[in-house]
Design a protein around this nucleic acid. Structure first.
Lengths: 224, 224
DNA sequence: TTTATTAGAATGAACGTTCATTCCATTCGA
DNA sequence: TCGAATGGAATGAACGTTCATTCTAATAAA
């Protein structure tokens, strides 16, 4: 559709300071910085609304009110609601996924990190780790090809990082894993962590503490 | 605004089935049977629409068109769209959950059944086993208390049946499990199966065949 | 047999509301 | 001053829901 499309999206925020040697009207980067901040403000509001009501039930009016701006203004920074959904999916997978996988070196690390994610989902106080959003985003990927592509691309990245973590953990146990073996183990780990996101919603009483002994055992078996 | 509200709108369906012994016109139960069939027809259509678009994006007009009836007629059988969503959630958990758990007697049974569910989700040809619907229903449970209650109630039933299956499987291995131990193992199994539903969407290339060796090993560890 | 009566099933055109989106007058910073 | 940034009203489409009406088929009356 129509593309007024100001500076945005160029990628670099370029947190500018006003050198502005030869200025054609605007301090270089200043407008882009402002735009980036506005986009972030909109995305923060959208994330809260999507968590509260879901992608389709959350309206632009809700998002605008939450962001403390008018609905019309949002369209200066995003072409359509759809783009906001995609941006949220992208951003959520960014923070939700590869938290600290590079620091996972033993199977205890992996187990602890999984349970840490579980607790963050359970507490419900961190918008970047929200189980409902994660589940709906996945459901949406089954219906919307564009969302599917975003999800699958990120899923592969996560898997690759997890493969390395698995190999490090196996090495720490004195076990050697082929790439293929590490790959399937990473898949099963992804599967279990995603299962935890479901569990957190279906049984909010469940605690990481009760999960830990069995999870430790299962992950140990996975590495052997 | 104004509410003319003349005679009509008698309020009740009062679907046949005479208080009076000699009902004029209708065979006893015939109307009730018809109503039940109509409700089923609507639910089948709604299920397809919800799978295709999600709870909120699917409109009453879509559902009516899919069911081959007018939108108005749906309101003869359901008070509101919300009721249809709840009925679908209920029905889906009914068929999706306790498939054949009473027949699970060994850990191979459990593993095979989990992978069987995975394959049914993956094939996407059975509306009663649809991963997107299962995920969105869970996401919705995090937002809507009525859905949450339906989900949690069913979740406990499933857990109880699974506890017994776990105990049978452990006994087959010559291991005795306390109720508490079996309970946590059932929880972890639920978690893994739910993880498979996510996986099926995020990585449609994945096959049960590749999963089986590791899953077997993990479940064995779980039972020991 | 024919006709009139009846009641539930079903329709489709509205209802008022809310939706995503557009447009424009105004404000603000330079 | 000028152009970008902004709020808010306006738009038409689509939403869930309701309602007067029509259809269908069986009963009751003739």
């Amino acid at each position: 559709m129509s593309e007024p499309r100001i500076g945005s999206a160029d990628g670099g925020e370029r947190a500018g300071e006003g050198v502005s040697g030869t200025v054609p009207g605007v301090a270089p980067g200043a407008a882009a910085t402002r735009a980036a901040r506005q986009r972030a403000r909109i995305l923060d509001a959208a994330e809260r609304c999507f968590i509260e009501r879901g992608f389709h039930a959350a309206s632009m009016a809700h998002i605008a009110a939450t962001a403390g701006m008018s609905a019309g203004l949002i369209y200066r920074y995003f072409g359509a609601k759809n783009e906001i959904v995609q941006a949220i999916v992208q951003r959520h997978l960014e923070t939700d996924g590869c938290v600290a996988m590079r620091r996972l070196n033993t199977r205890e690390d992996i187990c602890t990190e999984a349970l840490h994610m579980f607790e963050r989902w359970r507490r419900r106080d961190d918008p970047s780790m929200n189980a409902a959003l994660m589940l709906e985003l996945t459901a949406e990927a089954a219906r919307d090809p564009e969302i599917a592509q975003i999800v699958r691309s990120k899923d592969q990245t996560v898997n690759q990082e997890l493969v390395q973590a698995v190999q490090r953990a196996a090495r720490a146990d004195g076990v050697h894993l082929t790439a293929a073996a590490a790959y399937m183990r990473a898949v099963v780990l992804q599967c279990m962590v995603e299962g935890l996101a479901c569990r957190v919603v279906r049984d909010p009483e469940l605690r990481a503490k009760s999960l830990r002994p069995l999870l430790t055992k299962v992950i140990a078996a996975l590495m052997s």
